[in-house]
Design a protein around this nucleic acid. Structure first.
Lengths: 244, 244
DNA sequence: CGTGGAGTTGAGTTTGGTCAATATGCGTGG
DNA sequence: CCACGCATATTGACCAAACTCAACTCCACG
C-alpha cells in the first residue's frame, strides 16, 4: 500500500518533493470497500476525490434497458475522479469492481493547494489528460476492432499499467473481475467474451482463469490488438525510473 | 468569427476579465485551412494549441488495415489540442474535416500564463475534462447502442453544442461532413450509415442532405438516443447567460 | 448437501459488413 | 454550354460477427 502511494506521487510530473509532501499530507482516511460497492452515485456532487491503493474501480454508465458500459477502469496508483473537482454533477457512477482500498482527498483542500502550487495543478491536470488518452484508445477499440482484438487490447493495456505499479510481472497478473465486467468494458455480451477468450486461449495467446491472467505470447497478442503503449507513456515513467 | 472568440473565452469558468484579456492577447495568427488538411500529425510534438473559430476538426486514429476512428469532434469555439500541452507525443492526428478557421496559441506562452494565473489554468483544465465527459458518452454509445441510436445521439449532441455557440437554431444546422466521416465517428461502415439515416428519415426524426441537417422531432430523437445533455453542461453556460 | 453465481457450450436469429452496381451532383476543361 | 470524371450517396444480394435463449457445468459458501 505504502509504496503505491509513493509510486502515485512519484509519477506526477514536474512536481517538487515539497509539493508531493504537501499533497500527501492532505490525504485523509484510507478505507477498504468491498466489491460491488458504489463509491459515487450518478447525479451526485462529490466533495472528495480519491486515490486508489488497491483493487479496481470502474466508471459505469447505465442505459435504460439495462445496458451497462464501463467507460474507464482505474488500477491501484490511479487518481480516481479528479474530474469531479471541476464538474458539478456526476454523469455516471463509480463502482468498486473488486474489493478495494481507497484514500480520499477533499476537494476544498485540493483546490486551495492547486491555487497555491501551479506545478502541482499542472501535474494533476496531466493525470486527467492521460485518462483521456486511454479513453480515446478504448474508443478506437470499440469503434473499429473485433471482439477478440478488443479483449487482447484490454489485456495488453492492463498488463502494462499494472506492471508500472508493480502489480504485474513475467506476463502474469491478478485480475479478479467477472467476464461480465470485461464484457461491459469492451462492449460485447458476456457470452461472447467467453467465446472470444476461448479463441485467445486456443491460440495460446492468453489465459485467464480463477482471477489470474497469463499472457503466453506478448508479441503476438500485442500485434493482434495493434497495441502501442505510447498513449500510456506518462504512466510508465515511474517504472522507467525504478526498475524493480 | 469574433463573437466566437468571445464565446470561447466567456465560457471559461471562474476566470476574471483580466485573465481573459491576457489570454486573448496571446492568440497568434488566425488562418484558414481547407478540408482534409492534417493539422497535427500522429507522432509529432506540437508547439502550439489551437482555437477553432470555424469548421470542424476531428481527432483521428488509424488502424493498420485501413480502419479509421474519429475519437473526438471539435466544433467552433472549442479549444483544440490542449492535451498536447501536457503530453509529449501525439498518439493520433488532428484533421480538418471541413474547411476551417484556426487561431493558434503557443505552448510556451500558455505554460507561462498558467503558472502565473492558476484560475486560468483551472479553466483550461476544465475544458479538457469536459472533452473527457464527451468521450465517455461516445464510449457508451459505441459500446452499447445500435447504429441508428448512435447516429441519433451524434446529431443530438451536435445540435446542442452548435446551438450553444450560435451555429444552430430551430433544430437546423449546417453539417458539411460526408457519411464516411459520420461512419468513422460512430464506428460503423459508410454503407450502414446510409441505411441508418434512411431509417431515421423514414421515421421523420431527422433529415441530413446536402450538408444541412434538420431535426424534425427532437423529443423522439433524444429519447431514441437516450440523450441527456448533462454531460455538456459546462459547454452550455455561455448560451444560458446570453440567450441570443 | 444444496443453492446461487459465474463460466461454458450449442442452435438459431439479428445486426451490421462486404461487394458490387447504379445514381447524383459538382467542378473542370473542351 | 455541354461532356466527362470523380467523389459521394443509394440500393440490393449475400455473408459474417455477435446476440439471444437456453441448457448444463463448476465451484464456493452456507
Amino acid at each position: 500500500m505504502h509504496d503505491l502511494l509513493a509510486i502515485t506521487l512519484k509519477r506526477l510530473e514536474g512536481v517538487s518533493d515539497d509539493d508531493r509532501d504537501v499533497l500527501a499530507a492532505l490525504i485523509g482516511e484510507t478505507r477498504a470497500v468491498s466489491a460491488g460497492r458504489v463509491l459515487v452515485e450518478e447525479g451526485s456532487c462529490p466533495q472528495v476525490s480519491m486515490l486508489l491503493l488497491g483493487g479496481l474501480v470502474g466508471r459505469v454508465s447505465i442505459l435504460n434497458e439495462g445496458g451497462r458500459q464501463i467507460s474507464e477502469l482505474n488500477v491501484p496508483g490511479d487518481f480516481v475522479d479528479l474530474h469531479s473537482l471541476l464538474l458539478k454533477k456526476m454523469d455516471h457512477s463509480l463502482v468498486a469492481l473488486t474489493d478495494a482500498v481507497i484514500a480520499t482527498i477533499s476537494h476544498v483542500s485540493l483546490k486551495l493547494l492547486c491555487e497555491a502550487r501551479p506545478r502541482l495543478m499542472r501535474a494533476l491536470w496531466g493525470e486527467t489528460v492521460v485518462d483521456g488518452a486511454i479513453n480515446r484508445e478504448w474508443l478506437l477499440a470499440l469503434g473499429r476492432m473485433s471482439a477478440t482484438e478488443r479483449l487482447a487490447h484490454l489485456f495488453c493495456e492492463l498488463y502494462v499499467r499494472l506492471e508500472a505499479v508493480g502489480l504485474a510481472a513475467d506476463y502474469r497478473f491478478d485480475l479478479r473481475l467477472t467476464q461480465s465486467d470485461a464484457a461491459d468494458m469492451v462492449g460485447i455480451t458476456p457470452v461472447h467474451v467467453n467465446r472470444s477468450l476461448k479463441t485467445l486461449r486456443e491460440q495460446s495467446l492468453l489465459e485467464w482463469r480463477g482471477g489470474s491472467a497469463i499472457i503466453h505470447d506478448w508479441s503476438k497478442l500485442a500485434r493482434l490488438a495493434q497495441f502501442d503503449p505510447t498513449y500510456l507513456q506518462p504512466r510508465l515513467i515511474s517504472s522507467d525510473q525504478n526498475p524493480s
